Amino acid sequence: MDLHDLKKDIFKIAYPYIKNRLNVALSIGIISQDQEATFTFGGSNFMLEEKPYIYEVGSISKVFTTSILGEMMQEGKIHIDDSIGKYFSEIPDNHPVTLKRLANHTSGLPGIGVLKNIYNLFDAQTPRDPFCQYSLEETIHYFKTHTDEPKIKFRYSNVGMGLLGYILATTLHTDYETAIKQRLTDPLNMPNTFISIPSDQAEAVLQGYTVLGHKKSPLQMNDFMAAGAIRSTVNDLLKFMSVHLSDENLGYTLTHQATETFSEHMGIGLGWLLEDNIIWHNGSTKAFSSYLGFDKTQQTGVVVLSNYRSPILATNPGQIGKDILKLLQV
């Protein structure tokens, strides 16, 4: 079957999302066995991708981070059970939070707290990244003063993943942005994937829109880029996903193995969420939303990128992606 024959079926899946978004650019990439295809929709129209459409991919950045983690584990540069105290002199050497706990969101770091949000409003001088309640200095202080075994089994943390990326880059004697380039985008030939926007690619970076359709300025993160600062295209993410699908990189494969199980059908590896046979992650910034998921047993995968932030309880790129994966089932 030619994957382009699925265009009408994919359009039916995507239409409830795109029909009321006047400025939407929705890019979809699919892999099935050894075939690939991409589709981009603008409003109710099918668009030819004459130039790369570059999106903020939000928390899909996290599985870039853990892909580097897996490679460094495979190379023996770090160990998954290393205490974070090994990497910060202010934190006890035997601190119970490990790199694995940062990678699978079991570090015990607080979630979004109302009181901390209020405090942050009156402390504008402390630099904090978007979607992160703590600065790097505050995070180190938190672990310095909280030295007990974390009691929370799972609590999603941008700060925890951001700290992991900081540790990995420091271990590589570089910064996170350079680590992504050296470890991922250059080796995988992903020329339109980056954090800082190059001047010669600025025109390809899409304008992003809020849930209500208001324009937002481009995302900027500093200390915790590893949590969500990456920009990319559907074609670049297909390259990234195909390596994960193929198991040709043993470090990447390490990240797919369950480290915590929440139910019969749900668990988490290193960064990746595991749902039955689907390995996936989604992403959202103030003006973009995204999904990347694949099924190694079926050798299928899908990437969905949108230049709108999606409402939680409405059709979104995650639901679109899961519906397309069902469509691709043999």
Rank of each mutant, 00 (worst) to 15 (best):
L212W: 12
Y308S: 13
G113D: 12
I230C: 04
D200W: 13
F131Q: 07
I80V: 09
S83Q: 05
S232R: 07
I60F: 05
Q299F: 05
G269H: 11
L121I: 14
L237D: 02
I68V: 15
T171H: 11
P187C: 04
L163I: 07
I84W: 01
D93R: 14
S27G: 09
D200K: 14
M190T: 15
T210K: 09
T178F: 03
G321L: 02
M225S: 08
T98Y: 08
I268C: 12
A202M: 09
K7D: 15
P16I: 01
N20H: 12
F154T: 03
K12S: 06
L26F: 00
F122Y: 10
Y176I: 09
T65M: 11
A14N: 01
P150F: 10
H214T: 09
K286V: 15
V211D: 08
P150E: 06
E138I: 01
E264S: 07
V243P: 11
Q133K: 01
T255G: 08
V97H: 05
I197Q: 14
P110L: 09
H173W: 10
I80E: 12
P191M: 08
G301K: 02
N249V: 09
V205R: 03
S289M: 06
Y291M: 07
D9P: 03
L313T: 12
Y55G: 08
A314R: 01
F11D: 04
Q182G: 13
K239S: 11
T139G: 00
K51Q: 10
L168V: 10
Q133P: 04
N282S: 12
I112P: 01
Q220Y: 13
P191C: 05
A314S: 04
F154V: 06
I324T: 02
L206C: 08
Q74M: 14
N117Q: 05
S67D: 15
R231N: 13
T259C: 15
Y15H: 07
D236Q: 03
L292H: 14
E260R: 15
H95R: 00
A37C: 04
L109P: 02
A169T: 11
K326A: 00
